[in-house]
Write a protein that binds this DNA or RNA. Structure first.
Length: 479
DNA sequence: ATGTTC
C-alpha cells in the first residue's frame, strides 16, 4: 500500500524517511510502527510525513505515531516540533477539532455493582449529556460567559459549580491554556460554540462506562488509583463547532500569509506562518481559546456524569478525575535537541503528550511516576491507560499514540455495515450501545478501526509510553 | 471532526 522501498527500517518499530524521499525536506521523517501496521498504512500518509518535514524550522524529525493515517495536511498521528525563532505554526498540525481529548473518571464502584443497572444507567447518562451532530446543550451561556470559557477553560466550569477544584490540577495545562484571546475568535465561531457547551458531538466521540479488566503495572496503577474490577467513565470529545470554525477562519488567513512570508509549500493544506508573525500569534491565541472551550466542555460533561452516578448509587460517591489529555493541540515546551535544551512549538495532531517523571508540567501527584496517558478505544474495544517515559522524551518529544486510527472511511462504513447488526453483536458480548441512529453505530463499527491492542503494543515495546491498565466497556453512549 | 459543499 505504501512506497516502502524508499523507507528504511532503522530498528524494530522505527522507520525512517530519508532526506531524499522528496525534495525540500529539512529533516528526515520517522514513523513508529510494526511491520504489520506498515503493511496496512493508508497510502499517502508517508507523503504527508515527508511534506511536514519541508516546513521551516522543523526540529529532529517529522514524526508519526503507529495509529497514523491521512489527515488535512499533516497526518493524523503526526508530531512535529518547531524552533521558536525560525519555525512556523500550522492549523493543519492541530486539526479541525482543537483539543479533541479524553478524560477518565475513577469510581469507587466494582463492576458487579454496575452491570445489573447498566441499561438504565446508560439511558440516564445519554439524556444527561446531549450528543449527536448539531446537538445543543441544556446549558445556556451569555456572550460574557463565553469569553470566560475561552480564557479560563475548565476553571470557568469549576467556578460555576461544575466540578471541584481538584479536577483542575488533573488536566493537561490545568485545563486552562495561557495565551487565549477571545478577540481573535470570530462571531461565527462564537455563535456555533455558544449553544454547544456541555455536548458530546458525533463521530468517534463517546461517553463510556467501563471497568479495569487488567492491570499491567501494579506500582503505577496504585499511584494512579486504579484497581482491577474498578468502574471508570471515559469521556472523549472536543471543541465542537467552535473549534472547527476557529480552524476554518484562521486557515483562510494563513493560506494568504504563507505566500507573503515566502514559504514554499508542497501542499496548500500545510498553510502556516512564522511563529513570531501576527497571523501565527492570532491563530495561536484563538486556538488556545478553542482548547479552553474543549476543557470546559469535558468538565461540564464530567459534572453531569457524577450527578447521574450519585442518583444511581449514593450522594457522596467519589468519582475523582485521573487525568484529562489533549490529542489535537500545539504547545510551547522545552525539549533536548542536539544535546541542548530548547523551547519548541510542538504540534500534536492525533497524538497524546506522554511526559516522563520529573517534568515540571505534571501535577505533584504524578511528578514522580509520570503522566497518565488515556487512549480511547473504538466502540466495543478496550481502552488503555499508559504512563509517560524518559524514552518518549528522547524519541518523540514526549508523545505517543491517541487511539486505534481508522482503516475504513465513514462513507464506506455507512454503505457496507449495518448498525443494527453491530448493536446486536456488541449486546452478545455484554456491551450496551446508545446512539442517535443506527448509521452512527455503523460509522464507528469495530472493523473500521485498526486493532487498538496492536497500536498500544508498539508504543509499549518502543517505550514511548508504557501499559498500566486495560479498560473494557460495559455501556457506551455515542454521538 | 464539522449546521458532513460559501
Amino acid at each position: 500500500m505504501v512506497q516502502a522501498d524508499k523507507v528504511n527500517k532503522v530498528s524494530e518499530d522505527i522507520w525512517e524517511l530519508p532526506m531524499d524521499y522528496k525534495p525540500g525536506m529539512r529533516v528526515p521523517g520517522r514513523i513508529f510502527l510494526s511491520d504489520r501496521l506498515m503493511e496496512g498504512l493508508e497510502s499517502g500518509t508517508l507523503e504527508q510525513v515527508a511534506n511536514v518535514a519541508t516546513l521551516p524550522g522543523i526540529q529532529k524529525y517529522s514524526m508519526a505515531m503507529p495509529d497514523a493515517h491521512l489527515g488535512y495536511g499533516f497526518p493524523i498521528g503526526g508530531v512535529a516540533g518547531f524552533d521558536i525563532e525560525e519555525g512556523v505554526i500550522s492549523p493543519g498540525g492541530v486539526g479541525f477539532d482543537i483539543n479533541c481529548g479524553v478524560r477518565l473518571l475513577k469510581s469507587e464502584l466494582e463492576v458487579g455493582q454496575v452491570r445489573p443497572v447498566a441499561s438504565g444507567l446508560i439511558d440516564a447518562l445519554y439524556s444527561a449529556v446531549p450528543s449527536g451532530l448539531g446537538s445543543e446543550s441544556k446549558l445556556r451561556v451569555t456572550d460574557a460567559q463565553l469569553d470566560e470559557v475561552f480564557t479560563l477553560g475548565a476553571r470557568w466550569a469549576v467556578e460555576n459549580g461544575y466540578g471541584v477544584k481538584a479536577d483542575l490540577e488533573h488536566c493537561e495545562e490545568n485545563g486552562e491554556m495561557k495565551g487565549a484571546d477571545p478577540s481573535k475568535i470570530s462571531k461565527k465561531a462564537r455563535d456555533r460554540g455558544r449553544p454547544q457547551l456541555g455536548t458530546l458531538g458525533s463521530g468517534n466521540h463517546f461517553l463510556e462506562v467501563q471497568y479495569v479488566e487488567k492491570v499491567y503495572d501494579d506500582a503505577v496503577a496504585k499511584a494512579f488509583g486504579l484497581w482491577e474490577g474498578q468502574v471508570t467513565v471515559m469521556v472523549h470529545c472536543g471543541s465542537r463547532g467552535a473549534g472547527h470554525q476557529i480552524c476554518t477562519d484562521h486557515l483562510k488567513v494563513l493560506e494568504k500569509a504563507y505566500v507573503k512570508y515566502g514559504i514554499k509549500l508542497y501542499d496548500r493544506q500545510l498553510a502556516c506562518a512564522p511563529i513570531n508573525s501576527k497571523e501565527a500569534q492570532d491563530y495561536f491565541a484563538a486556538m488556545a481559546g478553542g482548547a479552553n472551550y474543549a476543557w470546559a466542555n469535558r468538565q461540564v460533561i464530567a459534572h453531569w456524569v457524577r450527578e447521574t452516578f450519585n442518583r444511581f448509587f449514593k450522594d457522596d460517591l467519589r468519582m475523582d478525575l485521573l487525568y484529562d489529555v489533549a490529542h489535537n493541540v500545539a504547545k510551547f515546551e522545552e525539549h533536548m535537541v542536539n544535546g541542548e535544551k530548547k523551547m519548541l512549538c510542538v504540534h500534536r495532531k492525533g497524538a497524546t503528550r506522554a511526559f516522563a517523571p520529573g517534568r515540571p508540567e505534571l501535577p505533584p501527584a504524578y511528578r514522580d511516576v509520570g503522566q497518565p496517558v488515556i487512549i480511547p478505544g473504538s466502540m466495543g474495544s478496550a481502552s488503555y491507560v499508559l504512563v509517560g517515559t524518559r524514552e518518549g522524551m528522547d524519541l518523540t518529544f514526549g508523545s505517543t499514540c491517541h487511539g486505534a486510527g481508522r482503516v475504513m472511511s465513514r462513507h464506506a462504513a455507512i454503505k457496507g455495515i449495518r448498525g443494527s447488526e453491530i448493536r446486536r453483536e456488541l449486546a452478545e458480548r455484554g456491551i450496551i450501545v446508545k446512539a442517535p441512529k443506527d448509521s452512527a453505530i455503523a460509522e464507528e463499527a469495530p472493523e473500521v478501526y485498526k486493532e487498538i491492542g496492536d497500536v498500544v503494543e508498539v508504543v509499549h515495546r518502543l517505550g514511548i509510553s508504557r501499559k498500566v491498565a486495560r479498560l473494557v466497556p460495559i455501556a457506551v453512549a455515542k454521538g
